[in-house]
Design a protein around this nucleic acid. Structure first.
Length: 201
DNA sequence: ATGTCGATTTGCT
DNA sequence: GCAAATCGACATA
């Protein structure tokens, strides 16, 4: 095991969430309070005035306000009334942008994560999919807005680097309603990795 | 292997 | 009222 360092605020404080989404692949998502950690293998960027798929496109609401907050915090929201989605807030405060975490490969606390998901530890369904990984890691709605450097959820760099040939880039999942924005190639995933969600197109 | 459908909060029309 | 940055149960083949 390589030594992990928590990502600094500067990692998140960049103008373009697409860059952050790409660089998040291979990083470690950790919940220190229960010893679980997993490697990020799939992400999607959201934000900017042209992105109709972004929750912030129509402005601030009670649900999406943390997207407008400082970078390096977690935007957690409820989807379809039951699934918790974990996003990383990027861009300067006041600019709404975030990266959705869509797939993770468990690297610590695998048994605990598998138990929460009711699958065996080697089953990709434990961490493949945005709703699946938050359940596996025990991420709670109450953590919305928490700090990713010192809070209950942290993201670390253990030195892993992915070349462009190991990364797949394509359309985002489940945003067909968003007009031209539906075709933005803002989804990133690790090639050949079984912990990437099964997307329908 | 593929298709339909229900769960259930949030926000727009 | 209805669709949503989804998932899993169940049906059919």
């Amino acid at each position: 095991m390589r030594r992990s360092k928590v990502l600094p605020k500067s990692f998140y404080a960049r103008e373009d969430p697409v860059e952050v989404a790409r660089d998040l692949l291979g990083k470690i998502l950790r919940v220190p309070s229960d010893g679980c950690a997993a490697r990020i293998v799939e992400t999607e960027a959201y934000g900017g005035p042209l992105d109709r798929a972004s929750h912030a496109w129509r402005g601030k609401t009670p649900r999406n306000q943390t997207m407008f907050g400082p970078p390096g915090t977690a935007y957690i929201y409820l989807c379809y009334g039951m699934h918790r989605m974990l996003n990383v807030v990027t861009a300067p405060k006041g600019v709404a942008a975030a990266v959705l975490i869509r797939g993770v490969e468990p690297v610590a606390g695998q048994a605990r994560m598998a138990r929460r998901r009711k699958y065996s530890p080697n089953d990709p369904r434990v961490g493949a999919g945005p709703g699946a990984l938050t359940q596996a890691l025990g991420i709670r709605m109450g953590w919305d807005g928490c700090d990713l450097v010192s809070g209950p959820i942290r993201i670390e760099d253990d030195g892993m680097r992915l070349t462009d040939s190991e990364v797949r880039r394509g359309r985002r999942v489940g945003v067909d309603y968003a007009g031209p924005a539906a075709r933005f190639p803002w989804r990133f995933s690790v090639c050949e990795n079984p912990w990437v969600s099964r997307a329908k197109a």
